[in-house]
Computed example of a mutant assay.
Amino acid sequence: MESKLLQKLKYASQLTAQEKHIVDYILSNPEVVFDSTAHELAQQTYTSSSTIVRLCKKLGTKGYPDFQLKLALEYQQIPSVMQTQDHAIAEQGNVLAAIDSVPYLYQQALDDTRRMLNAPVLLRIANWVKESVRIDVYGSDMNYYLAQQACAKWNELGISAIAHNSPNMHYLNTMNPNSLTLSFVISHTGENQSMIEAAKVLSNKQMKVIAVTGNNHSTLSRHCDETLLAYGYNEQLRLSKMSAMVSVLYIFDMLYMGSISDTY
Rank of each mutant, 00 (worst) to 15 (best):
H87V: 13
H87W: 08
A88I: 13
A88R: 07
A88E: 10
A90H: 02
A90W: 01
A90G: 13
A90T: 12
A90F: 07
E91G: 03
E91Y: 10
E91V: 12
Q92G: 05
Q92N: 14
G93Y: 13
G93W: 12
G93C: 15
G93S: 13
V95Y: 11
A97R: 00
A97T: 02
I99C: 14
D100T: 04
S101K: 04
S101N: 15
S101T: 13
S101E: 12
S101G: 14
P103V: 09
P103S: 11
Y104W: 10
Y104F: 11
L105Y: 09
Y106H: 14
Y106S: 07
Q107E: 15
Q107K: 14
Q107R: 08
Q108C: 10
L110W: 08
L110S: 06
L110K: 06
D111K: 04
T113N: 05
T113R: 03
T113Q: 03
R114I: 08
R114K: 13
R115C: 03
M116E: 08
M116V: 02
M116Q: 06
L117G: 01
L117V: 03
N118V: 05
A119Q: 12
P120Q: 03
P120R: 10
P120A: 03
V121T: 15
L123N: 09
L123H: 10
L123K: 14
R124S: 13
R124G: 08
I125R: 01
A126T: 06
A126K: 02
N127K: 11
N127E: 09
W128L: 06
V129G: 15
V129H: 14
V129W: 08
E131W: 06
E131L: 11
S132W: 02
S132Q: 09
R134V: 11
D136I: 00
D136V: 01
G139C: 11
G139I: 00
S140A: 15
S140C: 14
D141N: 15
M142W: 13
N143R: 11
N143G: 14
Y144R: 04
Y144V: 12
Y145E: 10
Y145M: 04
Y145C: 04
L146K: 00
L146T: 02
A147R: 02
A147C: 09
Q148G: 04
Q148N: 09
Q149E: 06
Q149V: 02
A150K: 00
C151I: 02
C151D: 04
A152I: 07
A152C: 06
A152G: 05
K153L: 14
K153C: 06
W154S: 02
W154V: 00
N155I: 04
N155S: 12
N155H: 03
E156N: 10
E156W: 05
E156I: 10
L157F: 10
L157M: 12
G158H: 11
G158A: 07
G158T: 05
I159W: 02
A161N: 05
I162E: 07
I162C: 07
